[in-house]
Nucleic acid binder design. Sequence first.
DNA 1: GTCCGTATTGGCAGCGCTGCCAATACGGTG
DNA 2: CACCGTATTGGCAGCGCTGCCAATACGGAC
Lengths: 348, 348
Amino acid sequence: MDEGGNDAFETGDAEPFDMAGRRPITLADVAREARVGESTVSRVLRSHGSFSEKTRARVEAAVARLGYVPNRIAGTLASTGSRLIGIVIPSLTNIVFPDLLRGATAALEQEGFQSVIAVTDYDQDREEAVVGSLLSWRPAGLIVTGLEHNPGTRRRLAASGVRVAELLDTDGPGLDIVVGYSNRAAGEASARHLVGRGYRRIGYIGHDLTKDRRAAKRYAGFRDALRETGLALADEERVASPSSVEAGRQGLAALLARVPDLDAAYFSNDDMALGGYFHCLAHGIAVPGRLALFGYNGLDVGRLMPQPLATIRTPRVEAGATAARLLCTGSPATVVDLGFELIEGATA
Amino acid sequence: MDEGGNDAFETGDAEPFDMAGRRPITLADVAREARVGESTVSRVLRSHGSFSEKTRARVEAAVARLGYVPNRIAGTLASTGSRLIGIVIPSLTNIVFPDLLRGATAALEQEGFQSVIAVTDYDQDREEAVVGSLLSWRPAGLIVTGLEHNPGTRRRLAASGVRVAELLDTDGPGLDIVVGYSNRAAGEASARHLVGRGYRRIGYIGHDLTKDRRAAKRYAGFRDALRETGLALADEERVASPSSVEAGRQGLAALLARVPDLDAAYFSNDDMALGGYFHCLAHGIAVPGRLALFGYNGLDVGRLMPQPLATIRTPRVEAGATAARLLCTGSPATVVDLGFELIEGATA
DNA sequence: GTCCGTATTGGCAGCGCTGCCAATACGGTG
DNA sequence: CACCGTATTGGCAGCGCTGCCAATACGGAC
């Protein structure tokens, strides 16, 4: 009666069967098989509370025999907190966010947590929607990108009482935990570096800054620092598309068409800068003799170009890992500035 | 009595309060607030079953007033299936997997599913562990990469009865749903293309093929197709590290040091090929006059190089989206070969 | 006004697990 | 041998929601 058959016409009124006609194995099955109580099985499986060595062996044998897989859905509902962390990133196209994920998932796994991810496409309304969706899983914490969120998102976050870590930006007030670096300062450092090297006719090539707020902060920092030295941006080109190698290549081409005597180009990130470098290679523009290039992010690819790209290396993986760890360990609200590193390279 | 206070010393024996001293709002609260039954609230929130317009308005008003967020953990436990799909990928470093994720999460979101991701670092034992971990969330389906899994993984997958989609490879028997393309055929096509162009002293630069089984299949296809034309690989260089621009650059350097008269280099993917291209640029090696380069994946960056990279474009985003859709809609087991496209480029 | 079919609605038993608490077993002690 | 403190163990009430089913309301048709 217990082991029935795979009879598809089974009409018993209580037993739920899966598609293959098997009843899912539950903790109660394991308890029966091991001839111990349910709570004993639960304790053994979580190594929590006390039990004898003999019992542990019995339970583990039963688990193996039945091929039991604990149901964390039930476990989470019964206990208070889940072992889930929600991660909200704007994009998967730009390698910086997978980097962030990489750091976070590695740290999370170590702490026994699982990550649920959601992508916003740099849209704050979509961010609000995915935050709501993630909150319905009652996560132990949420990792979001940046400090800018619309009021609805803030309200939901606050109402949920869930711990939040905001990443990759420290220029502004945070909600709870903040891990990142100053984009504004990065922009400023870039400007000072170029000016220090003697460049004077400096242009900017960026992407859609209304959506990418961190890029906008770098731009602002760059422009302001330039102004402080008495210079102004010679010109700028904003490509409407998201940042990409292609956007950088086309953006630089457009900018040079307007301002042929530019002596340096500041890109909103390394992908764009790589595109600019390709444009220079293709058109015989000497780098940095005729035109200097400066990026942002410190991607590997920049380091391996024939002339290493001048850029700013950001600790993205570390930011993800740090945030994950703080969230898992229940750290108090804090701001962690991981800083950045200016890489002189050879293109500026 | 109902609205109590935020009294931290509340000693009532039943009410669970969160860190902020608030009792989480449940569906029962909403029902009380809207003066309807719990099941009515449930029906309205899921737009499932019938209810009057008046009731919908009442419920929605109550939800808004209380700021209620449904608890999907409880919902999933009570109903049969979850709206979670587990995604297992080998790495987040190589952009192809974020691409896959991108396709999958976009399609999943459209169907009202959420994704839980896990990374294996190309390690089959870790794959087994993360599959077990994902299964404990009782996902509606699992997306895994490739067709090779160790016996433990296969056993768990089979025992769980969960639908599985295997991605990016069609060279071999699948477990259930398979979406991808033939890596072997891609390798063959690459070899035939290079031979057709007149190259004869062809070398291979790859990474760790014991871990990346799909790269190994391309390599095998390439080598076999070469042999069929009466040629043999002039030499090959296997870098021990994972694939990267750096590995490609160093690998080509090492190979050319051994075989200076190579006339074409086949790389295990575009990242490696880009590294090789950079080596050529840095050392004044004319491409393709002196050395032809061929990659795999069809990354954007290859298209934008001064000379577009000869490569094979793979539909990674589409594969993720297709798999997600098939899983969500409960498609029967099937193999979907999305094919690939050879891009002639200018480097070969 | 009566009767019946359909549209709405509420009650309540679980889903599988954990947390609490009482029950029992074990190992000395006096 | 009775007694006590500690180590193990089992029972069972929920966690918040959904699914089932019975109860009620509504809207004509007769």
